[in-house]
């Protein structure tokens, strides 16, 4: 081997590791999917359809950001869909029935989310029950609470413009595209999450805890506290997403967000974050969120019968995961 070739090694190595990284393969598949949908139906890339996708994207995407951090630390949260439903229901009930201003109601909703996340986190870390079981139970409790306090009915619509409503669900036009402020929330929170996971001291701790909790604890990393805060963060983001969604459609339903927990986890793992902890990627999650949104939207557009479309979603997710597993195996072998 010549010296010149040796000098080129690090750059080449970095490039090949980027190409082999899970978020990169996800990105390629996303581009392929978008191309296929665009060719199959010209309306896929129409301003109206893109605006539509961009309206839905942040609502699950925001939850997925929290879930990525939590999964990287080795835990997950099945109660996010239920929190997505309960938080806006509580806010709207307070606003409609109580003598409470919208700001106070939103604050109360967020405090409720903090409490739910804290309970999840405390039980998981201090009593040592797996997060699967704890948050599954919490899903039932939270969803049950939403159904009970509304007696199962959607709340009457509430549509009074104001600062907070604009902040959460305002909309604006760029050319013939119509965007919601929720997109800014998603962009801002994504940048923050990327910073935390990749560049901050906290991110180092989160990855270390998910990779080898005992090692992290032995180095003085407060693993339990970090996990509890991540449960709180995930819950708050789920509640925030629920409020954004409710204010966008000016109504809150106790069954909103049903099944979102699995969709969000799918976004995160399709993006390349390991379900077993230690390896997380926010960029991958953003790709994953875009992909699931595009799949749901695209297969309806190209005429797959509505009742059959979960089959396609499931198959595409499975294909993604198989691809990640194969790439992982290849990387380990080389």
């Amino acid at each position: 081997m010549t010296i010149a070739a040796e000098e080129e090694m690090p750059g080449a190595k970095r490039r090949s590791s980027l190409i082999r990284s899970p978020q990169f393969s996800s990105l390629i598949i996303l581009i392929v999917l978008l191309a296929v949908f665009a060719i199959a139906d010209a309306n896929f890339l129409s301003p109206l359809n893109i605006s539509n996708m961009m309206a839905f994207l942040p609502e699950l995407g925001i939850i997925a950001l929290g879930m990525t951090l939590l999964l990287t630390a080795g835990e997950f949260d099945l109660s996010v869909g239920a929190v997505f439903g309960l938080a806006p229901v509580v806010v709207m009930l307070l606003v409609q029935n109580g003598e409470v201003s919208i700001g106070v109601a939103l604050l109360a909703g967020l405090i409720l989310c903090v409490a739910i996340g804290a309970i999840n986190g405390l039980i998981v870390t201090k009593i040592g029950i797996s997060s699967f079981l704890v948050t599954l139970s919490m899903l039932l409790v939270v969803r049950g609470a939403a159904l009970y306090i509304t007696q199962g009915f959607p709340l009457k619509s509430w549509d009074q413009p104001g600062f907070f409503v604009t902040l959460l669900a305002g909309s604006f036009n760029i050319g013939s595209f119509r965007f919601y402020t929720s997109l800014w929330w998603f962009v801002g929170l994504s940048l923050l999450a990327i910073y935390i996971l990749r560049y901050a001291k906290l991110g180092n701790w989160i990855s270390a805890i998910g990779s080898n909790r005992n090692a992290a604890v032995a180095r003085g990393v407060p693993a339990d506290a970090v996990k509890i805060w991540l449960f709180i963060l995930t819950s708050v983001l789920a509640g925030l997403a629920g409020m954004i969604s409710a204010f966008r459609i000016s109504a809150a339903s106790p069954v909103a967000g049903t099944g979102y927990e699995l969709e969000v986890i799918a976004m995160v793992v399709v993006g390349g974050t390991a379900l077993t902890g230690g390896r997380g990627t926010i960029l991958g999650t953003i790709v994953g969120a875009l992909m699931l949104r595009a799949i749901r939207n695209g297969i309806v557009l190209i005429g797959v019968p509505g009742l059959a479309y979960n089959i396609f979603v499931g198959v595409i997710i499975l294909a993604m995961l198989i691809l990640h597993a194969l790439l992982q195996k290849n990387a380990a072998r080389s």
Binding site: W205, S207, A215, V221, R279
Partner: peptide
């Protein structure tokens, strides 16, 4: 050791050198 972290990140785990120390756990490595 945490296997998913780099050697450098493992060597300083829990005692990471940071800039802007006042940011606490949010301080950039």
């Amino acid at each position: 050791l945490a296997a998913d972290l780099s050697i450098a990140r493992n060597l300083f785990l829990g005692r990471e050198p940071v800039n802007l120390k006042w940011l606490g756990v949010f301080a950039p490595l």
